[in-house]
Design a protein around this nucleic acid. Structure first.
Length: 629
RNA sequence: GCCGAAGUGGCUCAGUGGUAGAGCAAUUCACUCGUAAUGAAUAGGUCGUGAGUUCAAUCCUCACCUUCGGCUCCA
């Protein structure tokens, strides 16, 4: 048989061989690092027997498939340890995830964080024993019998739900056996470095009606160094946590009096206003008009829009003069009313109506998370009214706008196309037309995308923008949604070239998404060290002593007159102290002003994280910096 | 909402069944200083809220609130 490797080389063998043997044959190093294999495009085990011509890629840790196998085996390793320590534990599912693995387990007695080291110790012991992992197959009856005999009620359910023709495979390592599709490593010895990171509740099958199981999360790596690096990255993320920086930098806060409702402090407001100033400039250039609609509107309106049916659980309500009102969870109905209030000609379209609207949504208490997940936030919304022929051009136009905005913050991003959810309005034809329209645009401009099945809005499909921050995490921010439903429900129309009434189509879109969340992301992306134009305080003026305070005051007044956000630190402290405190406040520029500078009318510049940047003439520095802003 | 953990001066955190401490920050005073912490003094807390156990609760019990890690949901 001929084996075609990834690099195109072909090796011939006279008899069937396992993947691991072929790897060994190619090089012992390859075999040592191998985690799994891709045979004819399918993920397989290293113990998979190749019997005829095939393409073969042997994947090490570091590849997606390799990591998957490694982490999955780690989950089994943990399960084995748990079984040793808690024989009564029942196992549900234990998959690999992007950063590690978890296993959902039902314990007789609840366990706590303090029990994790004990489990880690047992895992270490099992790793040291280097127990071979074996794979075998059972018939459905045999598999069910095993699960019943073991009392593994969750496995019984899993086996029962497997499709008719499924191959039911098991993996055994010593005294531990688990139902599993694999692939897995060859033995437990490879899992050299791991850590159980957290403990959490998780519903069986993710359904809140089901029993809550205990989920243990862990990470694992072939080398200790990799684990250390991973833990360092976690530390870095912790340092950048916007909740911590937001407090330290006095940007925003939360109070018990309004859980999930952010309070913006003066410096946070500067940030927010600066951000919105930029946003308005961009949107003006792209020919958007801005409106503002009420936060509270009658309940009837939300019944008309469909929100009452589809979004009721999240809507806050109130009563005014015996009339039921809803506090808006979205801006669209307001925009529909504005459009509907006047007559429109096809000549006006595309009509781009933006609204930075404050929406309120009742989120479950357990999901609140700093600025990332709140109960009231501003959406940088816009509703674009177009004819059916304008869909592609306009979607493309919006994509360009969003692209421009993200690049401005040095974000990379990828897009996903979300299709029809279960709970939705409209006909299949409309949905299919809308989805294929969006696909065409993405393909036309060559933007790669993934499909996110069933994740669209209830009124139409959407393109979601997931941006990637400076430490590699992704966040969903922008979306573009195509909507045939709202225009119909609100009887919107425009007069066409033919003099007849036609129904426009609406594009809903946001670029930042939620201003609050975007600010949270920016804080973490920049680790609080905002670019000059965005920094709440841009320049800190530091007189060396009392003697140079007048000059420092003059410099600050000049900076402010040029629109630069400057503050003076005229405390009676040593210059080292003031420098340190300016650096800790993460102010981009510090100006050290002593006797020499005052006499020569210069400034000694210090740049955040870069240190001393030389002495410059005052007016030269001010000109330079005013251009940056 | 559910599972688990936590809540002590502005911040970070000690601590004890007999009504509380440190560092930083703040305030005042002295020093007037050249690129990441000058020194001293002062002030500041009904220990998340409410009930219970106890002679006595910040500490033990219960309920609630908030926060944190997840589930689920989402911008």
């Amino acid at each position: 048989m001929k084996i075609t490797l990834k690099d195109g080389n072909v090796i011939e063998y006279s008899e069937p061989l396992r993947v691991i043997d072929i790897a060994e044959n190619i090089s012992p190093g390859l075999a040592r690092n191998a985690c799994a294999a891709i045979v004819n495009g399918e993920e397989k085990d290293l113990r998979y027997m190749i019997e005829e011509d095939a393409t073969l890629e042997i994947v090490p840790f570091g590849s997606k498939e390799g990591n998957h196998a490694f982490r999955h085996s780690s989950a089994h390793l943990m399960a084995q340890a748990v079984q040793h320590l808690y024989p009564a534990a029942k196992f549900a599912i234990g998959p690999a995830i992007d950063d590690g693995f978890y296993y959902d387990i039902e314990f007789e007695e609840p366990i706590s964080q303090d029990d994790l080291p004990k489990i880690e110790e047992e895992m270490k012991r099992i790793v040291k024993e280097d127990i071979p992992i074996e794979r075998y197959i059972l018939s459905r009856e045999e598999a069910l019998k095993w699960a019943h005999d073991e009392g593994e009620i969750y496995k019984v359910e899993l086996i029962t739900d497997l499709p008719e023709d499924a191959i039911i495979s098991f993996y055994r390592q010593g005294d531990f056996t688990d139902l599993c599709a694999g692939p897995h490593l060859m033995s437990t010895g490879a899992i050299k470095a791991f850590k159980l990171t957290s403990l959490a509740g998780a519903y069986w099958r993710g359904d809140e009606k089901n029993k809550m199981l205990t989920r243990i999360y862990g990470v694992s790596f072939p080398k200790k160094k990799d684990l250390d690096e991973y833990l360092e990255r976690l530390e870095e993320a912790k340092k950048r946590d916007h909740r911590k920086l937001g407090r330290e930098m006095e940007l925003f806060t939360f109070m018990d009096e309004g859980p999930g409702f952010a309070f913006f402090l003066p410096k946070g407001m500067v940030l927010k206003n600066t951000l919105m100033e930029y946003w308005r400039k961009v949107h003006d250039r792209y020919d958007y008009k801005e409106i503002s609609t009420p936060i509270m509107l009658t309940q009837d309106l939300w019944e008309t829009s469909g929100h009452w049916d589809h979004y009721r659980d999240n809507i806050y309500t109130s009563v005014i003069d015996d009339q039921a009102y809803a506090i808006k969870p979205m801006n669209c109905p307001g925009a529909m009313l504005v459009y509907g209030a006047g007559q429109h000609s096809y000549r006006e379209l595309p009509l781009r109506i933006a609204e930075v609207g404050l929406v309120h949504r009742h989120e479950m208490s357990g999901v609140l998370h700093g600025l990332m997940r709140v109960r009231a936030f501003n959406q940088d919304d816009a509703h674009i009214f177009i004819t059916i022929d304008q869909i592609k051009d306009e979607v493309e136009n919006v994509i360009h706008l969003i692209d421009e905005v993200y690049k401005h913050f040095d974000f990379k991003y990828h897009v996903e196309l979300s299709t029809r959810p279960e709970d939705s309005m409209g006909t299949d034809e409309e949905w299919n037309a809308a989805i294929s329209g969006l696909k065409e645009v993405l393909e036309k401009i060559g933007l790669p995308y993934e499909i996110n099945e069933g994740d669209g809005a209830f009124y139409g499909p959407k393109i979601d923008f997931h941006l990637e921050d400076s430490i590699g995490r992704t966040w969903q921010c922008g979306t573009i949604q195509l909507d045939f439903q709202m225009p119909r429900r609100f009887n919107l129309e425009y007069i066409g070239a033919d003099g007849e009434r036609h129904m426009p189509i609406v594009i809903h879109r946001v670029a930042f998404g939620s201003i609050e969340r975007f600010i949270g992301i920016l804080i973490e992306h920049y680790a609080g060290k905002f670019p000059f134009w965005l920094a709440p305080v841009q320049v800190k003026v530091l007189p060396v002593s009392r003697n140079t305070q007048d000059y420092a005051q003059e410099v600050m007044t000049l900076l402010r007159s040029r629109g630069i956000r400057a503050e003076i630190d005229d405390r009676d402290e040593k210059i080292g102290f003031k420098v340190r405190s300016a650096q800790m406040e993460k102010v981009p520029y510090s100006l050290i002003l002593g006797q020499r500078e005052a006499e020569d009318r210069t400034v000694s510049v210090r740049i955040l994280d870069e240190g001393e940047a030389g002495v410059k003439a005052l007016d030269v520095f001010v000109d330079e910096i005013a251009n940056q802003a």
